[in-house]
Amino acid sequence: MLAAAIPVLWGVTTGPLLRGVVAQNFATSVICLVMLLLAQGYGRPSYTDLALVLAVLGPVGTLVYARLLAEEDDKVPPQSRPATILTVTATVPVVIASCVAAGPGRAAVKVALVGLLLIAGNMTASQTLSGAYREPGEDRHG
């Protein structure tokens, strides 16, 4: 978790606001994956519930910020694609391992749902953030 905190802190503290939003979305995804691993490692199903809540609220928060920042004139578009690819690449093995460790049943379904929400939320947020950037003088409504 500390290794992921360094690029997140760098993204939040430097550059345009949209880069900070990308970093926030990435941090939410990392925390969700860590919660899934901790849930299996310590045998605490409540950590899976926390990961589920974060998987829903994280991308929603990113979409809200992207909407609020859509009028900002940032000179550099956010680079959300690498963070999305990294998140999806990390989510698949963590979710598969957590589902196997949880065994068949409701817990495995919950873990799989967290994984699907993380992937779908990150892909949606990435597309939205890419669309929130506009060239100076470009009309965004057509």
Rank of each mutant, 00 (worst) to 15 (best):
76 V>E: 15
19 R>K: 11
79 Q>M: 15
35 M>P: 01
90 A>K: 02
90 A>H: 02
36 L>R: 01
17 L>A: 15
32 C>T: 07
76 V>W: 09
29 S>M: 06
35 M>H: 09
97 A>V: 12
109 V>G: 10
63 L>H: 06
71 E>S: 14
57 L>E: 10
36 L>Q: 04
92 V>K: 05
60 V>W: 03
55 A>D: 01
55 A>E: 03
27 A>N: 04
66 A>H: 02
69 L>I: 08
54 L>S: 08
77 P>S: 04
10 W>K: 10
63 L>I: 10
25 N>K: 01
84 T>P: 00
78 P>N: 12
38 L>V: 15
69 L>P: 01
96 I>K: 10
74 D>K: 01
85 I>D: 13
49 D>Q: 09
30 V>N: 07
108 A>W: 05
72 E>L: 12
22 V>H: 01
79 Q>W: 08
84 T>D: 13
10 W>Q: 13
47 Y>R: 07
52 L>W: 01
95 V>S: 13
37 L>H: 04
6 I>N: 04
107 A>H: 13
58 G>Y: 00
105 G>I: 03
53 V>W: 03
29 S>A: 14
48 T>W: 00
70 A>M: 07
39 A>M: 13
90 A>W: 05
52 L>R: 10
34 V>A: 14
26 F>P: 06
109 V>T: 13
86 L>C: 05
74 D>M: 09
4 A>I: 06
74 D>C: 14
109 V>L: 15
65 Y>R: 12
55 A>N: 00
99 C>E: 15
48 T>P: 04
75 K>G: 12
24 Q>A: 15
5 A>V: 11
43 G>C: 06
8 V>A: 11
13 T>D: 13
102 A>T: 08
13 T>Q: 10
34 V>R: 01
93 P>C: 07
91 T>Q: 05
103 G>L: 01
56 V>S: 02
27 A>Y: 01
32 C>L: 02
36 L>H: 05
101 A>W: 09
98 S>N: 10
44 R>P: 01
63 L>P: 00
105 G>T: 04
64 V>Q: 03
86 L>N: 06
12 V>A: 14
46 S>R: 08
14 T>M: 11
25 N>G: 14
7 P>N: 09
72 E>A: 12
98 S>C: 15
16 P>W: 06
109 V>C: 03
103 G>F: 06
61 G>L: 02
98 S>E: 09
78 P>Q: 12
32 C>H: 06
28 T>Y: 05
54 L>A: 14
48 T>E: 08
59 P>N: 00
27 A>H: 02
67 R>T: 15
67 R>D: 14
36 L>E: 11
99 C>G: 12
49 D>G: 15
15 G>A: 10
82 P>C: 06
40 Q>F: 02
64 V>M: 10
53 V>C: 00
63 L>T: 01
51 A>H: 03
